[in-house]
Design a protein around this nucleic acid. Sequence first.
RNA 1: UCCCCGAUAGCUCAGUCGGUAGAGCAGGUGGCUGUUAACCACCGAGUCGCAGGUUCGAGUCCUGCUCGGGGAGCCA
Length: 486
Amino acid sequence: MTLGNSSLKWRKNLVGVFYWREMQMDYFTRTRVKEINSGQKVDQEVIILGWARTKRVSKNVGFVEVNDGSSLHNAQIVFSPPGDFPELERIITGTSLRIVGKVVKVEGREQAYEVHADKLEIVGECLHDYPLQKKRHTFEFLREIAHLRPRTNTFGVVNRFRSKLSHCIHEYYQNRGFYYIHTPIITTSDCEGAGDLFQVTTLPLEELADQKKKLDMNEDFFGEKAYLTVSGQLEGELLCSALGDIYTFGPTFRAEQSYTTRHLSEFWMMEPEMAFCDLDEMIILIEDFLKHLISFSLENCEEEMAFFNRWIDKGRQKVLQSIIESDFAKITYTDAVKILEKANRDFEFPVGWGRDLQSEHERFLSEEYFKKPVFVTDYPRDIKAFYMRVNDDEKTVRAVDVLVPLVGEIVGGSQREERYDYLKNNMLQQGLDIEEYQWFLDIRKYGTVPHSGFGLGFERMIMYLSGMSNIRDVIPFPRFPRSAKF
RNA sequence: UCCCCGAUAGCUCAGUCGGUAGAGCAGGUGGCUGUUAACCACCGAGUCGCAGGUUCGAGUCCUGCUCGGGGAGCCA
């Protein structure tokens, strides 16, 4: 294989750790497009490694816009005269290139800097059936070519934003003394109260199906039924009982048959768990945390936010700005029901104390009544999970959901039941096997402390910040029923 | 799992009353211009999602299936 004019002579260096080529791609010495467009390299000779986005060639001058993933913006490469660069003819959108040239500051053009090319090499040709055009594609089409869609403007922006926001989350918690915990992906608890699970097995299913034999789970890999986790919370509680403040941030799996714009079968969730922290204290943290993510986006992701504001959801920036300047709304479930009952509104589903809030109810509260994020607390005990702390009224639990316009529930959390007897009773009432969860009960026996935690849906947060309306478009390779390609 | 909508060129779509297929973009060729979603001319490109039915005749009407989209439930 030939890569442009560079030969592929590899040699081992003296240390024996690195390999490099003599006529290499200049990985370490190339200049990123982002640096060129920020004016750091004016009048210097640079090497650019990237992909052609568009080409315009005439008799006296030609232009190729090159993107290398470092930013939304392309470098404009100028070829003058085009006849000196025969490789130009072979360039179409998608072709990978190595260009050597000089950075020049220009006036009165769309871009402030250009690169006047001295040398052009084609690294990899792009076949003519390349499905990505210079024009806009529908997100539906791009989902079908998820292997190529990262090369588009929107998905470039989304993926860079995802990376920055992940980093921001780690930084936020690390700066506050939280420890990052890796909770298990494989679990044997079959009822964490958060939905259907994917079973993990090494049993030869097709063979067994033919034999019509009764399954002996003792022969499976773990000697019992195992699943992919639906939450790191239970293990998180154990760690928080030792380290004080911890957080998890990893993939989470739900096997529900959900076909909506805000559900995935595999998504990323961030779950902090705080010892000696009650619900009201946690709510202060949640609001500070969410506002931090918003102001981080506005201040440190200008390129991304400007793109979202222009192409995805006009006015997004203004909405976010107004949210960090005001307080979140905060009501109890009981008051929320009263508001909904008085709303004089024909809801499809009835409103009533003891019934769970439906999507349309949540939407009404966050999008119309409060028009901003709202904490809803103290839900009826019967509709919430066994581990939530029971209030003195014995009817409600110290749960909290954060509802936001556009996305719905973005955070769900609670103060945990730290009293051994209460927790045990709840578990019995909900039909859980006490023996299987003895480890979870044990921390209530040995120096129990009030503690609280919540889960933030990472993709939903990205949706909220960006205005992207389908969760399948804020994760590189979405998994949902009947779809796990790429 | 339930309800609604859709599937026509590589992409985005049009296709009237049932009469055998069109545009823009992309690609090719040529031209032109410091161009910038460049522009102009010409060219090639289609088992109209699949299977069956009604009809002299189906992209168009009917049935089933597949796939895609939206909504509901479940939740983050």
